[in-house]
Design a protein around this nucleic acid. Structure first.
Lengths: 195, 195
DNA sequence: CGAGTCGTTGAACGGAATCAATCGTCGTGG
DNA sequence: CCACGACGATTGATTCCGTTCAACGACTCG
C-alpha cells in the first residue's frame, strides 16, 4: 500500500487496530461490510463457499496488502476471511472512508492510483506465472521486483514468495540453490540479489 | 469494463477511435502519456524492454479491457504496446479524463469501483493459476466466470482462454474433451456450460 | 486461391509436483 | 529453564502430467 496515502488516512480517519489468532475469521461470506481492511502483519486467506458446499481459495493476503477491495462497493462480503497465521489488521470504517473520499478528491485520486498500481502488479505476477520454467520464472520475478541495486528485500518468508509466483517451496529452494551455484544470484538474510 | 461507466465517458468525453494493424505499436516505452486507452477488439501485448536489451512480456490485453492503467498517473509509458492482431482502440485524452474526474467525484468513484473489480478478478485468476491439475483449473475457472445458468459466454477464442488460465491450448482442448466425455461440461458455439 | 489462424489430435520427453524425512529456530507454557 | 510443538528451510527419490513438437483439417479474409 502506498505509504504516503496510508499515513494520510491514518491521521484523518483514525483507523482501529485488531488482532486475530490463527484460525479466527475476520468476516464471513454474507456479512455486512462495515470496514475496509489493511493487513499489517500475518497472513489471511479469502475463501468463497460454493453452492455445493465446497470451498474455493480466492486469495491469500500477505503482510502489507489491502484485501477485499471490491467490498468497498458492495453491502455484503462475497467471501470469508480467515487468519492463516496470527495477524494484525488496521481497519477503516467504510462509511467514514467513503464520505471522506467523496469530500476529498485528492484522496480518492490517491486511492485510484493505488488500485492502478495494484492492477499493474497483479498483471505482472500473472504473466510471470505463465512462464513454464521455474528458473526463468524466478529470475523474471526478481528482475521485476528488485530495486536499483539489483536487490529484492523480502517482506515475507521464502515459502510465501514461492506461493506468490505459483510454485512449490521445494522447487523454489532447489532452483534458488542452482542459481546461486551458477553465480547468477546471491542470497542473504532477508534479500535476494541478482548479479 | 463497466459498461455503464464507459457509456458515460463516451458521451461526456468524446473519445477518438483508432485502428491498428497487426504488428503496429500503439505507444512505445518512454513515450509521453497522452491518452487513456480501451481495447474494443483485437489483442495487444505490453512488453517492457530491459536494460540488457531483452524483452519481458507484461500483459496481453484482450478485447474489452483497459490497459496500462498506471499510465494515468505517470508522464511516460513504462512499456510498449504492440498489436498482436488487428485491433480497434478507443482512447480518451488523459488531461481531459483527469480534469473530468477531478470535477466529478461520481465518475472517479465509478472508475475506482472498476479498478477494484479488476483487482478482484486478477486475484481470482492468479489463484486459479496456482491449481496444478489442468482439469481442476478449468472447472474452477468456469465456475467462477459463469452466469446463473452455469454458462460461460466466450468473448474470445478458446486459445486465448487457455492462455488466460496459464495453460497451452493443446492441453486445454484435450481436457475440455475429457470433461465433455465425462459429462461434466458441455461445449457450444461461443459458450461453455457446466452440468 | 493462398495465407493465416483456430481447433484438434498424436507421440515422446522432461521437469516440476509429490511424498517423505530431517534440521534449526522460535515461542510458549508447564 | 527445558520440553514441546509449530513452522520455515532443505534435500532426496519417484512419479506423472502437462509441455513440446509436429502434422492436419476447417474456416475466414483479402
Amino acid at each position: 500500500m502506498n505509504k504516503h496515502l496510508l499515513d494520510q488516512f491514518l491521521t484523518d480517519l483514525k483507523p482501529s487496530g485488531l488482532s486475530l489468532m490463527k484460525g479466527e475469521h475476520l468476516f464471513l461470506q454474507g456479512d455486512q461490510v462495515e470496514y475496509f481492511c489493511f493487513l499489517k502483519t500475518g497472513k489471511i486467506k479469502l475463501i468463497r463457499h460454493t453452492v455445493e458446499g465446497g470451498q474455493a481459495l480466492i486469495h491469500v493476503a500477505l503482510a502489507g496488502e489491502t484485501f477485499a477491495e471490491a467490498s468497498l462497493f458492495s453491502n455484503a462480503f462475497h467471501c470469508s476471511a480467515i487468519a492463516v497465521s496470527a495477524s494484525e489488521i488496521m481497519r477503516y470504517k467504510k462509511s467514514d472512508l467513503l464520505s471522506y473520499l467523496e469530500q476529498k478528491p485528492a484522496a480518492m485520486k490517491g486511492l485510484l492510483r493505488m488500485f492502478a498500481q495494484q492492477v499493474r502488479d497483479l498483471r505482472t505476477v500473472n504473466e510471470i506465472k505463465n512462464i513454464r520454467s521455474a528458473k526463468e520464472r524466478i529470475v523474471t520475478f526478481v528482475s521485476n521486483e528488485m530495486n536499483e541495486d539489483n536487490e529484492l528485500c523480502l517482506s515475507m518468508p521464502l515459502k510465501d514468495v514461492a506461493y506468490k509466483i505459483g510454485m512449490t517451496h521445494e522447487t523454489f529452494y532447489r532452483e534458488l540453490k542452482k542459481l546461486e551455484q551458477a553465480g547468477v544470484l546471491q542470497r542473504g538474510d532477508g534479500y535476494l540479489k541478482l548479479l
